[in-house]
């Protein structure tokens, strides 16, 4: 009994790392995605081409590979290793890789949302003497949020589970912790990790449906 609690505690500690990676990725990827989205819609063709090429590469290669490249790439190229030593450095590298990867996916969701907004909304703002900035923040943004909420919910749920990929650079996340027990012949901790993911995803699902309901006051 006591051992079970110890194991669950260790798994919980591992899942805390999954959560940190999740939260930090969202913190950076949500705004970065918007920058990338504007880049991919730019009328300045060279910028648009570079951004679209970048999104293609990031969406076209495995995230696991990107984590390895971000963490080990600088060292392999003979540069000074930018990552601090130890677990903190590994987590930082993982956050960078995840944030870039998810920002690219988010950017496409944002772009779809922005392009689906009726042009008349922007024109109505222009005619009323609003600046581009005012139109974006006061008119477009909330309508955009409403439209992208369902696909964003999808991506956010995927992100929860993708955080496990960080164990490729020895981040001590929950699956990595569980596998230590597997190698000692104890199999149940590995399967019990599913409960952690399910509970967290369940909470997120509730959060997203609450948000969608909150924005139901307009159409």
């Amino acid at each position: 009994m006591n051992e079970t609690m110890v194991i669950l505690g260790r798994l919980g500690a591992g899942f805390w790392l999954n959560f940190e990676l999740f939260a930090l990725t969202l913190l950076f990827a949500v705004p970065l995605g918007l920058v990338i989205a504007f880049g991919s819609m730019s009328r300045f063709l060279p910028l648009k081409t570079v951004v679209k090429g970048f999104v293609w590469v990031i969406r076209g290669t495995p995230l696991m590979l990107q984590i390895i490249v971000i963490y080990l790439g600088p060292g392999l190229l003979g540069w000074q290793n930018p990552w601090p030593a130890g677990g903190f450095g590994r987590l930082t590298a993982a956050v960078v890789a995840f944030a870039i990867n998810y920002a690219c996916y988010f950017s496409e969701i944002y772009r779809g949302g922005i392009e689906s907004l009726p042009k008349g909304q922007i024109e109505a703002g222009q005619v009323l003497g609003m600046t581009k900035r005012q139109i974006f923040f006061k008119v477009t943004l909330l309508q955009l949020v409403k439209r992208i909420l369902p696909p964003m919910g999808n991506e956010v749920i995927t992100l929860v589970k993708d955080t496990s990929l960080a164990n490729i650079i020895a981040c001590k996340e929950i699956i990595m912790m569980a596998k230590e027990y597997t190698s000692k012949g104890l199999i149940w901790p590995l399967f019990s990790t599913a409960v952690f993911f399910l509970v967290f995803v369940g909470a997120l699902t509730l959060l997203f449906s609450w948000l969608e309901k909150k924005l139901n006051y307009f159409r």
């Binding site: 008349g120 909304q121 109505a124 222009q126 005619v127 003497g129 909330l142 309508q143 307009f218 159409r219």
Partner: peptide, 20 residues
């Protein structure tokens, strides 16, 4: 352009009210 627009008002065919 912005300030100049204020000399004119425009009412659109399909209203374009801000839904939120």
């Amino acid at each position: 352009k912005r300030k100049k627009r204020l000399h004119f008002g425009l009412v659109f065919q399909n209203f374009n009210l801000f839904p939120q």
